[in-house]
Nucleic acid binder design. Structure first.
Length: 648
RNA sequence: GCCACAAUAGCGUAGUUGGUAGCGCAAAUCAUUCGUAAUGAUUAGGUCGCCGGUUCGAGUCCGGCUUGUGGCUCCA
């Protein structure tokens, strides 16, 4: 007998070789039906794999990430089985479960899979699923595995196997389909009741641009048809929050083919929103000792040769601007750091002057690959809420922590609760990609890791994701359909101060090198606004919304009174307008609900007599009458408290 | 940049064997002067993204380009 420990620490005895599914059956038939995989001493196993020693066991259902993972991984195999049945010469790459569903990379050489083929593949999957074929796990030697997949002409699998260690190789078979696979899987395909193949895409083999591009087929499956319908509904709903759609509907920004790809035009309302965000951050930065600076949009090419950016990005960027002067070349600035370094150098600095914090909403231009452009989140011209902090080494951690505070203030004000933090460090195996000494890198990386620890911030560490001049701490927020975008960023840099020969005079009367922090709490105004639109669905907080109130006269007879109210509100810094169209009140209300204006102020005979308004709140309805002066006071108080919450 | 898909009026869209473009909203005009999610009528608006080809004839078929969408790669 073996002892099985459950998550609640209860222990039961089972015969040696008991499987996860048998354990589930011993507890309840319902559980046996719902269970998808089993955790054995922290590893996820197949339900049919015998457990031969004492173990702590957790049964995973659909609600558990591990359960979904096994479900979707098996679905990927089911799709592969269907593909093989339909296209006998198809070759398989990899086919994992992902956050929402699964994919398989395939190579159907002469006849690549197209979107129009998906329904046929789906139908075949259904057909095979109805057979409820078992997935059979088998340990194999490297030799046998190579032989098996070579005989099947699976060249991609051969490559994968050749890199594996003998004795660790397992294969899974269901029906005619055999796959190199670590597992775990469902016992059989029976639970996969609802199937939807979503899209096809090109994907480079092993993520390497220089290698062959395979066809990646994305799909998702569920144990119930209803769950699939709900998921598809969710995707439909998410489309309504797409910032590109709302940006157009709410007249925030636009693109023009004549202006160029990835070069957004900010419309009046979008500009208002962006301005308000900038003012908010400026106010915070002022409190935190920043000084605003302004620098030109271009600079001599030599600036970026000095910084190292030209060597790394020069040929893939907007090309230099020439002048009538032979040999003179300027670059559109792709970042603000060199300019800010030059500001630092305008005066001799003393250790007493530091830290210096130069902030600028700096517009930069980067020639992103055409395929990368995406709404406002990835553009070729954008404005960073940039600042560069120059400090003494002993001030670094404190400065870094204060920058983190600003990021948290911003995220908090806009209700970004589910952000993820990522520490991006050097790839230790690929150091030639980076500039600067090992010593400086280690100092910088340590500073970030320690700052996160001090703040109790649970940050994921990613190797190889650092900028070429220094490590960074990034804050990522998801968009409406779950794509992650980097917003705030904080970077520690020992390298640029050296390249620009920045100095300060220490208390010891010796010259020292300052440390630099690059930081942008929003990241870029464009991307931040994009993610904000998707988070709010266009229902912006009152302090930020371009139009806070609209006055709706019942008929044209009350237009003059409406204008009087509007003038008062404007005098009191409230953004309001009059809807004086010749329409019925019901129509005006509807249109302004659709425009998501927070307050509708309805005025007719009753209101005009007493300097009153009828207040209607967006999404809530009629709030009754009040003096318009009272309304202005209440609204301004609300805005005030929202904008100053961070100071408490 | 690569793979797949798409592009019809300001916006959203119909147009299924190729036969000369509809609809809704918005706009303009007129009537109506209205009390909490769409008043009615009339009018105007389209070289069907661009260039080329096939054809008696192309929104529709073919090729190239541009722009966009979903991914891959990239992201200072």
């Amino acid at each position: 007998m073996i002892k099985i420990t459950f998550p609640d620490n209860s222990v039961r005895e089972y015969p040696q070789g008991t499987t996860g599914i048998q354990i589930a059956e011993s507890i309840s038939p319902r559980l046996a039906q719902d269970v998808l995989a089993v955790g054995v001493n922290g590893q996820t196993w197949d339900l049919t794999r015998p457990i031969n020693e004492d173990a702590s066991v957790k049964l995973y259902k659909w609600e558990d990430a591990e359960g979904k993972h096994a479900f979707w991984h098996t679905s990927a195999h089911l799709m592969a089985e269907a593909l093989q049945a339909l296209y006998p010469n198809i070759k398989f790459g990899i086919g994992p479960a992902i956050e929402n569903g699964f994919y398989y990379d395939v190579d159907n050489e002469e006849n690549p899979i197209k979107e129009s083929d998906l329904p046929v593949i789906e139908a075949k999957m259904m057909e095979l699923q109805s057979l409820s074929e078992p997935l059979i796990r088998q340990d194999v030697t490297k030799k046998d595995a190579l032989q098996l997949f070579t005989s099947r002409n699976e060249t991609y699998k051969e490559e994968l196997i050749s890199e594996l260690e003998d004795g660790t190789i397992t294969i899974y078979q269901q029906g005619q389909f055999v796959d190199l696979c670590r597992g775990p899987h469902l016992p059989n395909t029976a639970p996969i009741k609802a199937i939807k193949l979503l899209s096809v895409a090109g994907a480079y083999w092993r993520g390497d641009e220089t290698r062959k591009q395979l066809t990646r087929i994305y799909g998702i499956t569920f144990p119930k048809k209803k769950m699939l319908d709900e998921y598809l509904d969710f995707l439909e709903e998410a489309k309504k929050r797409d910032h590109r759609k709302l940006g157009k509907e709410l007249e925030l920004f636009a693109f023009s083919q004549s202006v160029g790809q990835g070069l957004p035009l900010w419309l009046p309302k979008g500009t208002m929103l962006r301005d308000l965000l900038e003012q908010y951050l400026k106010k915070i930065q002022k409190k935190y000792g920043y000084q605003q600076v302004m620098t030109p949009h271009i600079g001599q090419k030599e600036l970026w040769i000095t910084s190292g950016h030209y060597a790394k990005y020069g040929k893939d960027s907007f090309q230099p601007i020439r002048t009538p002067q032979e040999g003179e070349e300027f670059l559109l600035k792709p970042m603000n750091c060199p300019h800010h370094c030059e500001i630092y150098k305008t005066a001799p600095r003393s250790y007493k002057d530091l830290p210096l914090r130069f902030a600028e909403f700096g517009t930069v231009y980067r020639y992103e690959q055409s395929g990368e452009l995406h709404g406002l989140t990835r553009v070729r011209g954008f404005t960073q809420d940039d600042a560069h902090l120059f400090c003494r080494p002993d001030q670094l951690k404190d400065e870094f922590l204060k920058v983190m505070d600003i990021v948290f203030i911003i995220f908090n004000a806009l209700n970004f609760k589910n952000f993820e933090a990522q520490i991006s460090l050097r790839d230790p195996n690929n150091k030639e990609k980076y500039i600067g000494t090992d010593e400086n890198w280690e100092k910088a990386e340590r500073a970030i890791v320690e700052a996160c620890q001090e703040k109790g911030l649970d940050a994921k560490v990613e190797l190889g994701e650092a900028a070429f001049y220094g490590p960074k701490l990034d804050f990522m927020v998801k968009d409406a359909i779950g794509r992650r975008w980097q917003l705030g960023t904080i970077q520690v840099d020992y390298n640029l101060p050296e390249r620009f020969e920045l100095e300060y005079m220490g208390a010891d009367n010796q010259k020292h090198r300052p440390v630099m922090i690059h930081r942008a709490p929003f990241g870029s105004m464009e991307r931040f606004v994009a993610v904000l639109i998707e988070h709010t669905g266009g229902n912006f907080p009152l302090w930020l919304t371009p139009e806070q109130a609209v006055i709706l006269p019942i008929s044209e007879k009350y237009n003059d009174y409406a204008k009087k109210v509007a003038a008062y509100l404007e005098e009191n810094d409230i953004r309001a307008s009059v809807d004086d169209r010749n329409e019925k009140i019901g129509r005006k209300i509807r249109d302004n609900e659709v425009k998501k204006t927070p307050y509708m102020l309805i005025v007719g005979e009753k209101e005009a007599e007493n300097d009153e308004i009828s207040v209607r709140k967006h999404g809530e309805g009629d709030k009754g009458m009040m003096k318009f002066t009272t309304f202005a006071e209440i609204l301004n108080q609300e805005v005030e408290s929202m904008m100053n919450a961070w100071q408490k």
